Amino acid sequence: MKLIVGLGNPGKKYDETRHNIGFRVIDELSKSFNIPLNQEKFKGVFGFDTINGEKVFLLKPLTYMNLSGESVRPLMDFYKIDIEDVVVVYDDLDLPPGKIRLRQKGGHGGHNGIKSLLAHLGTENFKRIRVGVGRPEAGVAVANYVLSTFRPDERQEMEEAVSQASKACESWLSKDFLNVMNSFN
């Protein structure tokens, strides 16, 4: 079994924000795999299907970003999904808009959603796909920045980043994550 988690915040007002890039990747995968996100449980919305003989889950935690682990851990426990079979997609301030970076493990880098996952999963050994959203200009609070929408000049590169992150997830379903990293980093 494999679990792909996209981090974000629930609600229409957050749909197009920088912080919801993980949700956008899950939505893209839902369409391309034809897996409806029609189950609400474990403080999240998810769907699953069998792809290449393996059950694949797509999850959007509905806990708000800072409590993401409260959704991921119970789903993993219920379905007995190993930490090695989890990848988390989320926004990253340290990457320029549109750039993606894959990692096999790591710290939280100041990201509150990842802090919550580290606390609830008890390990930093989970795969990540970081999607760059850039840094705010001087004087703009980080919280306000990540809850803002993309500027018109950033939208095309962000659509490409969502597509690339989705393709990386899809590639991971049939390849070792190290090979996927080598292809997409």
Rank of each mutant, 00 (worst) to 15 (best):
W172S: 15
L29G: 07
G107I: 06
Q164L: 12
L67P: 06
Y145A: 12
P97I: 06
V133P: 07
V86D: 03
V72F: 07
V25N: 04
E170C: 00
E124T: 14
V146S: 03
G47K: 12
R103Q: 10
S71G: 04
L75E: 00
R128M: 04
R73K: 14
K13D: 10
K31G: 15
L95I: 05
K105H: 15
G47D: 04
F177I: 15
F78T: 04
V86C: 03
N125R: 15
T63F: 01
D91Y: 01
R128D: 03
S30E: 11
P74H: 00
N179Y: 12
R73D: 06
S68V: 03
L93I: 10
S166R: 10
S166Y: 04
V180I: 08
D27P: 08
I35D: 00
D153Q: 14
F46Y: 13
I129Y: 10
P97H: 12
G98L: 06
V87N: 09
L3W: 04
P74G: 03
G109S: 06
E124M: 15
Q156Y: 03
N9A: 04
H19L: 01
I114M: 01
D15Q: 13
L173H: 13
L75F: 01
F78V: 00
L95N: 11
N52T: 06
L58N: 05
S163R: 14
D49L: 03
W172M: 11
K13W: 07
E154I: 07
F177Q: 13
S71M: 01
K43N: 14
F78L: 01
E124F: 07
D15Y: 09
K80M: 09
N182H: 00
R130A: 14
I100C: 12
I21Y: 05
P96H: 06
L102G: 08
A141M: 15
G53F: 05
N179L: 15
V87A: 12
S71W: 06
E70R: 13
S148L: 08
L59G: 02
V142T: 08
V86L: 15
R135P: 09
G44A: 07
V25M: 02
V142H: 07
Q156S: 14
P10Y: 02
H108K: 12
E28Q: 13
F42L: 03
M65H: 05
P136W: 08
L121S: 13
C169S: 14
I129C: 10
N38Q: 12
G98K: 10
V142G: 05
M65Y: 09
N34D: 09
P61Y: 05
S148W: 12
E170R: 08
L29K: 13
V88Y: 00
G113E: 01
L59C: 01
S183I: 09
L67W: 06
M158A: 11
M76Q: 01
F33K: 09
V162A: 09
F126S: 02
D27G: 02
D27H: 06
K167G: 13
D91M: 02
